[in-house]
C-alpha cells in the first residue's frame, strides 16, 4: 500500500517535472514548481518526515514561489524558443544517471531495519534523547542540541545569503550615494 502511494506521488512528480521542462510560459513554470514542492511535501509525509514536509510546504510552495514571481516581474515572462535540439545534454544526463543508479545497487533495501544508516548514531539518538534532553520531538532535540553547531552554521549561511541579496539588489549603495550627495 505504501509503495502504491509512493509510486502514485512519484508519477505525479514526474509529470510535473516534464511539464516544467516543456512549458515556455514562465508563469506556468513557476506555479508548477510550487506544485512540485507540495507533492514532494506529501511524499515526505509518507516517508515519516513530518518536520521536513512542513518546511517544504512552507518554503517551497510559499516563499520560493513569491520570490520567483518577483524575479519574473523584474525580468521577462516568456522563455525564448529553445535552441536546436542538441544530444550532448541528454548524453551527459543519461551517463550521470546510470552512474548514480550503479551506485545504488550496493545500497540496503528500502525500509530495511538493519541498514547501516540506522545502526549506530540513529539508534543512539532515539534511545538517549529521552534521558539526555527529554523533548518529545527527537528532530528538534537533534537539531538544536546534539547538532547545535550545525544549526548555528546553517543560520549563519541564511544570514549571509540575505547580506548577499541586499548587496546585489538591496539598493543600500544607492541610498548611501544619495545621502552623500545630499550632504555635499
Amino acid at each position: 500500500m505504501e509503495l502504491f502511494i509512493i509510486l502514485t506521488l512519484f508519477f505525479m512528480l514526474v509529470v510535473t517535472a516534464i511539464a516544467i521542462l516543456m512549458m515556455r510560459h514562465l508563469f506556468a513554470v513557476v506555479m508548477l514548481s510550487g506544485v512540485f514542492s507540495l507533492l514532494s511535501a506529501l511524499l515526505f509525509v509518507t516517508l515519516d518526515a513530518v518536520d521536513v514536509a512542513f518546511t517544504e510546504a512552507a518554503v517551497g510552495a510559499g516563499i520560493s514561489t513569491v520570490l520567483m514571481l518577483g524575479t519574473m516581474a523584474l525580468t521577462s515572462r516568456n522563455e525564448k524558443m529553445p535552441r536546436d535540439f542538441s544530444p550532448i545534454p541528454l548524453l551527459v544526463v543519461i551517463a550521470t544517471g546510470s552512474v548514480l543508479i550503479y551506485g545504488t545497487l550496493d545500497m540496503p533495501i528500502f525500509g530495511s531495519p538493519t541498514s547501516p544508516a540506522l545502526s549506530h548514531l540513529a539508534t543512539a539518538y532515539l534511545t538517549q534523547s529521552p534521558h539526555d534532553i527529554g523533548v518529545p520531538n527527537v528532530v528538534t532535540a537533534i537539531l538544536a542540541s546534539y547538532r547545535g553547531y550545525d544549526t548555528l552554521g546553517e543560520t549563519v549561511v541564511v544570514f549571509t545569503a540575505c547580506v548577499g541579496v541586499l548587496i546585489l539588489i538591496g539598493g543600500l549603495a544607492r541610498r548611501r550615494r544619495k545621502d552623500e550627495e545630499g550632504t555635499n
Binding site: 513569491v66 518577483g70 516581474a73 523584474l74 540575505c162 539588489i169 539598493g171
Partner: peptide
C-alpha cells in the same frame, strides 16, 4: 528571528525594484 527577518528582507529587496512587467 533570523529566518523571519531574512525572508522579509529578501522580499523587500525584490519588491522595491521597479518592475518591467
Amino acid at each position: 528571528v533570523t529566518v523571519a527577518a531574512v525572508m522579509v528582507a529578501i522580499y523587500y529587496a525584490f519588491a522595491a525594484r521597479p518592475p518591467v512587467i
